[in-house]
Design a binder for these strands. Structure first.
Lengths: 146, 146
DNA sequence: TATTATTACTATTAATTTAGTAGTAATTAT
DNA sequence: ATAATTACTACTAAATTAATAGTAATAATA
């Protein structure tokens, strides 16, 4: 029931971009260094995010990545879904029918419900919310030090 | 973000036992056959469930497994937690601290929240609820046939 | 008490998934 | 042209999960 590091890294990448929104492109190299993630690995993670329309990119010198819309308009669900494939906790939810018992199996329904709950939770949080949390945490730390 | 087959099988096993509550021991062999799960594999799954105190067993002839308490008193959380290890969606929640950034990282908090939501959801459903759902599904099917 | 049926335990293997690396191509600015 | 960057494809390594195998312990009973 673990979330993949793909998703965790992807979220941190998106949060970095969110913090830089409207300030031009960011280099993957810089994000990777700052987040201490392999640049090569990040460059794979970025692909589904771009395909999902969450970020725009420019190649070559002065290129980089940037959010395609404001942090307030990007929910965590939009970020995690393309990275995890989907948010179902079991395979056989949508027609794939590994199991032929779904018509009588109550477990099947529970897992479908759980997937829905997870999706709802992630849909209720935006990158802007995370930015705000980040600032509050930093402020709290600062207060603690002073 | 998939739930393991261990957990899925474990839940189906517990549901089988719930349907037989107060009717004596059930043989793993029979459950395995009925649920079309390898008996050997099920025999591994049953161990953490017993250690969690959810079922009692008796060896030898006339032995088998039985729930240790009524289906209404067993939540899905109690079943899934020992099978999945825990319900956290990331490793670094409880002190294990793979990542040293939790004091400033808002993602960390989100994942902790999500784990809590999942736990709450599973805690809100009991085996009795599943039994009821099962009956309703069966009744619905019957109605459809007639 | 020997036999049979069952759970309990430990070790091993196989399969799948996830994580990460490597190398090359395409694009853009200068 | 050159340098810097993203885009893509293929491969490898590591970790996890699923499943099998074999033996030990226990309980009923003939």
């Amino acid at each position: 029931m673990r979330i993949s590091t793909r998703s965790r890294y992807g979220l941190r990448l998106m949060l970095s971009l969110a913090g830089n929104f409207k300030k031009g492109y960011m280099l993957l190299k810089d994000i990777a260094r700052h987040e201490e993630i392999s640049e090569k690995y990040l460059s794979l993670i970025v692909i589904p995010l771009r395909k999902a329309g969450l970020l725009v990119s420019s190649r070559g010198a002065n290129g980089g990545y940037s959010l395609s819309k404001p942090p307030s308009e990007i929910s965590l669900k939009e970020i995690i879904e393309p990275l995890e494939g989907d948010l179902d906790v079991i395979e056989c939810i949508k027609g794939k029918e590994i199991c032929d018992k779904s018509s009588t199996c109550p477990s099947h329904d529970i897992w479908a419900l759980l997937g829905g709950r997870i999706a709802d939770f992630l849909d209720s949080i935006t990158l802007e919310d995370l930015l705000k949390m980040q600032k509050e945490k930093a402020a709290g730390l600062l207060e603690y030090i002073i």
